[in-house]
């Protein structure tokens, strides 16, 4: 028996079926094909799977599908595209802020949420906002610089 749930993803209304205990990540990556959401640990410990739920970062790997019902979900695909990039994405490329890049999906989501409540974060504030996000390659300092660069761009300052 499968129940259905409706919510919006990246501004688009969707209705999806729960196959029997699905987490949000399963339908995002599966039925909806939004593979920019990355699976990392399945235990809310690495941040790879972050999405915005009504603007707040949540780990989609453990979130029961029903919790998204009636709400607004933003995935990494919803931040920006190659044609219309978000200043964060431009800044990450400008700073070469990544090595393998797998963790960046979740980090971009966390950074977007941070910049919406703090337009001029310090290195320490960024590190704290990304505390739940693991990066194994050691691109941390570049990532912090990229978030600061994006903050400057969003404030209308030059990079």
């Amino acid at each position: 028996m499968s129940a259905t749930f409706s919510f919006t993803v990246n501004g688009r209304p969707v209705t999806v079926a729960d196959e029997g205990g699905d987490k949000l990540i399963h339908v995002l990556r599966g039925a909806l094909g939004l593979t920019g959401v990355h699976f990392g640990c399945g235990a809310e410990a690495c941040g790879a799977c972050l999405v915005l739920l009504d603007g707040e970062p949540v780990q989609s790997c453990t979130l029961p599908l029903e919790r998204a019902a009636g709400r607004s979900v933003t995935t990494p695909e919803g931040i920006g595209t190659q044609n219309v990039p978000h200043p964060l994405q431009e800044a990450f490329i400008a700073e070469q802020a990544g090595q393998c890049g797998y963790c960046l999906s979740g980090i971009l989501i966390a950074a977007k949420a941070l910049l919406e409540r703090n337009t001029d974060p310090t290195r320490e504030e960024i590190a704290l906002a990304l505390e739940k996000n693991l990066c194994r390659c050691g691109a941390h300092n570049r990532i912090v610089r990229a978030v600061q660069r994006a903050a400057r761009a969003l404030r209308g300052e030059s990079p």
Binding site: T35, P76, Q82, F92, G98, G101, S105
Partner: peptide
């Protein structure tokens, strides 16, 4: 700049 990074910043490439 890294050739593979843009795709990854937009959530693909894996």
């Amino acid at each position: 700049p890294r050739l593979d990074l843009p795709a990854k910043v937009f959530g693909s490439g894996f």
